[in-house]
Design a protein around this nucleic acid. Structure first.
Lengths: 107, 107
DNA sequence: TCTATATTTCTATATATGTCGAACTATAGT
DNA sequence: ACTATAGTTCGACATATATAGAAATATAGA
């Protein structure tokens, strides 16, 4: 189990990635596991391409790319090219780590 | 229930506060609900004074004060003067909010 | 009141970050 | 090969941040 002591820097980097409102919005968009109204059977995050993710954020493509790179480097977002597009998604494992991080410790 | 949409900026500020390794260490020290070996009955975070929190971090008192102020302004840390000291602690409510933030949404 | 301890505020400075536009790379379709 | 679309890299710049030291404030105790 990934505890804080072994991952100080890693957690700090993840929180840094989430500290920018634009990046947080991107992350949040990736968190919705299925289209509204439907219900996912698996706890699987959905995939979005870069352009879709940036919609409504009113930032330049270069800025969008920069922010997704930051999220990727922090280990929060997976990225893979698929033809003309680059797909982005979250690993549920990382979300669980983060969720667990905020439970009060009984060391 | 405090959802993301109503608290975008607030969450970003909390993550920003946690994005610095020194602040993250301070936060983590506050997370231990009781002294090692013991077991807490209540889910109550412990109180530490500013000086105690800074031990082992090797930062100047002014820097320590600055960081705790950031954590406080982000709403993560409560502070109250008690005589010569200033006591710091976490609100379990905020920890729960953050823990919940990382669960996959079924919007 | 004087002193020691705890903490904060102020000021300065080096470094990091967010942002964009221009140029570039990758891919698909004609 | 040419063109359009998707996305990235690079360079520049304005702003934000981490840090420390010096000075100030708060409190307890002699």
């Amino acid at each position: 189990m990934s505890n804080y002591s072994d991952n100080k820097e890693r957690f700090a980097k993840m929180f840094h990635a989430l500290s920018n409102p634009h990046r947080l919005a991107l992350f949040h968009r990736l968190q919705t596991c299925c289209t509204p109204g439907t219900r996912c059977s698996t706890e699987q995050a959905e995939r979005f391409c870069v352009g879709e993710l940036g919609k409504g954020l009113h930032i330049a493509p270069s800025t969008l790319s920069h922010h997704l790179k930051e999220l990727h480097r922090a280990g929060l977002v997976k990225m893979e090219r698929s033809g003309k597009y680059v797909e982005c998604w979250l690993e549920p494992k990382v979300l669980n780590e983060l969720s667990h991080f905020f439970t009060i410790k009984n060391e």
